[in-house]
């Protein structure tokens, strides 16, 4: 309980300090990018069907289906975002840290950038380093614009390029089961970690043999 409170407080602090640094803050409400409600997800299919190559922060090529076999927490952000995105990544970290070791060591976290022009793998490496997370399990991905849009559509993340280096986007964390299907979603910022933590516990308890291969 205490841990959860501290994590929440950290998220709130991050949000506050990030806001203060935003050069647009106070000028024009529209200069702050605004959250877009996420789309409902109406499918129970695997996201591993996505045929796309991504680059990790250490320059490796990776495909989503290489994440099969373990649960994956996935979110979409952009690196120069100073308001929502740091909170969102911190939310993923809060979930990661709230897990028992046995579950945490199997969790993969994927952070995909909306902004391939600016968020090069090098920049994503710097970005990831700021969060002090396990680089073996955390992947900060750079991809092609068309693939980013496909992934966003599959996740129900809405976004648009405002043309000034900012993006409007949904604030969404999605948990994929080991077969790549959406197991749980958490929309919004600094939300309680419980729903996704509980879903991860359920996945951990489900014997792999019972998991049905998805089409």
């Amino acid at each position: 309980m205490k841990t959860a409170f501290i994590a929440l407080a950290t998220g709130a602090l991050l949000a506050v300090s990030a806001f203060a640094e935003n050069p647009h803050a106070g000028h024009d409400a529209h200069a702050n990018h605004t959250p877009m409600t996420a789309e409902a997800i109406t499918h129970e299919h695997s996201l591993f069907h996505l045929d796309a190559d991504w680059q990790t922060q250490d320059g490796r090529s990776i495909r989503l289906d290489q994440l099969a076999g373990k649960p994956t927490l996935i979110t979409m952000i952009y690196g120069s975002c100073t308001t929502a995105c740091p909170v969102l990544v911190n939310d993923a970290r809060r979930i990661d840290r709230a897990l028992p070791d046995a579950i945490r060591k199997n969790l993969q976290v994927v952070v995909v950038s909306f902004d391939p022009a600016r968020d090069t793998p090098e920049r994503m490496a710097d970005y990831g380093a700021d969060y002090d997370v396990d680089a073996e399990r955390w992947h900060f991905l750079h991809g092609a614009p068309a693939d980013i849009r496909t992934l966003a559509a599959m996740l129900g993340v809405r976004y648009r390029d405002n043309g000034d280096g900012t993006f409007d986007h949904s604030n969404l964390l999605t948990l994929l089961d080991p077969e790549g299907r959406v197991a749980e979603r958490s929309e919004g910022l600094a939300r309680p970690v419980d729903p996704i933590v509980k879903a991860l516990e359920r996945l951990h308890e489900t014997p792999r043999a019972e998991a049905v291969a998805s089409d």
Partner: peptide, 8 residues
């Protein structure tokens, strides 16, 4: 979460 908390 539209899909998984379907009403029983």
């Amino acid at each position: 979460m539209k899909l998984f908390k379907s009403p029983t």
